[in-house]
């Protein structure tokens, strides 16, 4: 067993926990947290495993790294936009303290 396999197994288990989190969490915002964090971390670790183990010219590996960079830039941006849109759409969050509703009545 080589040590790079740990990256693949870690990414797979994190993806599985992210899907379970989307199923189990109570409202949209906590589901969004599970989706954005687990998808970004799992996808980046799986793509790093692929880059390390495949036999290809260096430019193709750089292309895979560009894919990982784009995932890391775009996934939090879309989750931020969706969170604000869900709040404006009228989904009431199940929270203890809501300072956003204090400032925007």
């Amino acid at each position: 067993m080589r040590p790079e396999v740990l990256l693949l197994l870690f990414g797979e288990s994190i993806m599985l926990f992210g899907a379970l989190g989307i199923l189990r969490f109570p409202d949209v915002y906590t589901r969004l947290q599970a989706a954005s964090k687990c998808d970004t971390g799992g996808a980046m670790s799986i793509i790093l495993y692929l880059v390390i183990t495949m036999d290809a010219p260096a430019l193709v590996r750089a292309k895979f790294l560009v894919l990982a960079f784009l995932i890391a830039m775009m996934n939090p941006m879309v989750s931020h936009a969706l969170a604000r849109a869900a709040y404006r759409y009228g989904v009431v969050p199940k929270v203890v303290v809501d300072m956003y509703a204090w400032d925007n009545p």
Partner: peptide
């Protein structure tokens, strides 16, 4: 929004 989150994932 739940459905959109699922589709993005």
């Amino acid at each position: 929004p739940d459905r959109v989150v699922g589709l993005n994932t």
